[in-house]
Computed example of a mutant assay.
Amino acid sequence: MNRIIFAFFFISLATQAQNTTTLPKDTTPPHATLKDISWMQGYWTGEAFGGITEEIWTPPLGGSMMFSFKLVVDGEVSFYELGHIREVNKTLVYELKHFNDDLKGWEEKDEVHSFKLVKVDGDRVYFDGFTFEKVSDNEINIYAQIDNEDGSTEEVAFNFKK
């Protein structure tokens, strides 16, 4: 019985990890434009981390698409993310910063989390540790590799609807 549970757990982890990928070391990101991810624009809501999530993406303008993310748990803002996907050297880069509910930043003033483009594959756009998936015009998934306090990582799925 324990072997069955372990096998199921192992298969579940392996299945989850298939939604995100990383850019191999010393590999140049592929060419892409904001047109490849312009379907992200809009107001999206979902549930994750025990609360309500909200993500707003602007249309492409000035070589970038800006976004804001908010997590609300038990009626209180838990945290925000602000960022963008921008065109740089004929490819895309996904960049973000985190903020507490009082807008005090988690990262240092000049620190930004930056994720290189890995590939564009149909309705999926893969960044280093993040995948954006168009399910339909009114539904998207975002898969993110999250670092845990113990040094391990896990893939978290966010499902959003317009």
Rank of each mutant, 00 (worst) to 15 (best):
I4W: 12
I5S: 15
I5N: 13
F6R: 11
F6V: 11
F6M: 12
F8L: 14
F10Y: 15
S12K: 11
S12G: 14
A14P: 05
T20R: 03
L23N: 05
T27L: 11
T27H: 10
T28C: 04
T28E: 05
P29Q: 08
P30M: 04
A32W: 01
L34S: 00
L34N: 01
K35C: 05
D36G: 04
S38K: 10
W39M: 12
Q41M: 08
Q41Y: 05
Q41K: 14
G42R: 03
T45G: 07
T45M: 07
F49V: 08
G50N: 09
I52P: 01
T53N: 06
E55Q: 13
W57D: 02
P60E: 10
P60C: 11
P60M: 07
L61C: 09
S68A: 11
F69Q: 03
L71G: 06
V77G: 03
S78M: 03
S78Q: 04
F79G: 00
F79K: 02
Y80W: 15
L82N: 07
H84P: 13
I85F: 00
R86S: 12
E87P: 03
T91L: 04
T91I: 06
E95K: 06
K97F: 10
K97G: 10
H98S: 11
F99L: 11
N100R: 15
D101V: 05
L103Y: 09
K104W: 04
E107H: 10
E108T: 12
D110S: 12
D110L: 07
F115L: 10
F115R: 01
K116Y: 07
G122E: 08
F127A: 02
F130M: 06
F130I: 08
F130E: 01
F132E: 01
D137C: 09
D137Y: 07
D137T: 06
A144S: 00
A144W: 01
Q145T: 14
Q145Y: 08
I146L: 15
I146Q: 14
D147T: 10
N148W: 11
E149P: 06
D150R: 05
S152M: 13
T153A: 09
E154R: 14
E155Q: 15
E155M: 15
E155Y: 14
V156R: 13
F158G: 01
K161S: 12
K161N: 14
